[in-house]
Structure formats: C-alpha cells, structure tokens
Amino acid sequence: MSFWDKMQNMDRRWVYLMVAVAVIIPFFATPDLPISITPEAQMLYDAVEAVPDSSTVFVVFDYYPSTIAECEPMAISALRHFYRKDCKVITLSNIPLGGPSMAERVTREIALEYDKVYGEDFVNLGYKANYVAVMSGMGTSIESIFPADNSGTPLSELPMMDSVVNYDQVAFIFEIADNATADYWVSIVNAQYGIPIGCGTTAVSAPKYYAFVGAGQFVGLLGGMKGAAEYELLIGHSGSAVLGMGAQSLVHLLIIFLVIVGNLGFFLGRRGKSGEIS
C-alpha cells in the first residue's frame, strides 16, 4: 500500500483532531487580521442608519440555539445599533425551541448597557405558532395576534405599544434567521406592506438570500459569522464574531489543505491509477 493509499484510508478521527487543534490554537495566539466589509453588510448598516431616530423597529429572533454562534452576535449588534438611535425595539420569534427565551435574555442584557426600560423602550412579544398567520395577521393588528407579551403582560398595559397598531407604525425589520422564515418575511411582509427588511442569516442560508438583496427585497445581508463580524466592526463594537475570525481562517485553510491532499491521494493512489476516474 503506497503512502497515498494509506492517506486515503486514514482514520477519520485524525481529521477530527486536526480540526480541533486548528480551532483551538487561535484562542491562545490571536492573529490580528484585517476584516473587510462586504457591500451587502455596508448596505444593511446604511439602511439602519437611515431609519429615523426614535422609530419603532422589529428585531426578529428567528434562530434556534444550534446557530447561536452565528446569529447571536448579529442580534446583539442590531440591538446596540437601534438602542443607540433611541429606537423603540419590538422583539419576537417564530421559533418554538428557544427563540423567545433567547430574545428575552439578549434584549434585556443589551438594554442594561443603554439604560433602556422594558415596556417603554423595548418589548418582547415572544412566540405564537404558525408563522405565516403571525406575519400576515400583524399587518392588521399586532394585538390580535399577540394579546400579551412573552411574560403574559397584556399589550394594553405596556406604554410603548399604545402607539403601535400594525406594520404602519414599524419603520424597519431586522430579521435574524437560520431557516426559511426569512422567505416569508419577504413574500408576506415586505411584498404586501413595503417595510424595509434587513437580514442576518447563517452562512448556510446566505447564498440564497443574495437573490433577495438583488431584487431589493432585503436592504442588506449579513452572512454567517463573517457577516456578524463585519457588523460588529461597522457599529464599532467588536465581539465574539470578530474574535472567532482567527479560528475560522485557520480551519478553512486546513479544510482546503485536506481537499488538496484528498484529491492528490485519489489521483496518485491506487484508485486513480486503476482508471477509476471518469
């Protein structure tokens, strides 16, 4: 068995070990790398900047805990950006596993940094089942879909909600999603009510949403942890996404190296020589 054949049959756990080492090293020897801003992230930042101060906005927590590493830095940056502009923030979630809990925790944590008061500066509507009905129904009346907030307080008892009836009073929607709910914010809310939507999404979903940015249905896009890092830099508040870029770089380089070695092994090894390549 040649060297390349041995490489082809390497125990997968060696690959796992290499990935683990590549992801750990940068946390102890942080490389200082310039992070470029993509036009899509810049467009989103500019669109949020263009929202009039003190407007009412939505920050939607449409992600599961599984993608917290990619999506939470986006949510934190979006909240910081809106709180800085004194916007009234309404949060909600269409995710039944963890969405409302994460919205509650993150929104309250960031609110403390800006002395924001619950019920006056921000409200967490929580969750309601069947997201197409929720998105569509809020076009007529938010209170009919969410009679109470996430803690069960009737919306009529929250001062901030006095002046908010439906989408007519909402200036911007910042959708942070790891699933297809973003498609329905586009097809139902943006298309029918014309509200500008900015999207932060996982890297897995990002390529699809370039089509929405190109059509003007999203005013900007953050793709994955890199997108989150870009937004952190744009608002001037580095966080976990910027910190993660070192590890992200090293693991990408490792995977590219593995792909090259795998292909070399395939072509130079037994299977390549026996003419298995078509």
């Binding site: 790398l33 994955g224 590219i256």
Partner: peptide, 12 residues
C-alpha cells in the same frame, strides 16, 4: 475553495 478563502481574513 475560492469562496472558502474569500470569506476569511487570512484567505482574503
């Protein structure tokens, strides 16, 4: 491969 390079600072 090129997209993987482009999306990280070292690769870019």
């Amino acid at each position: 491969t090129v997209v993987m390079l482009w999306r990280v600072p070292m690769g870019e």
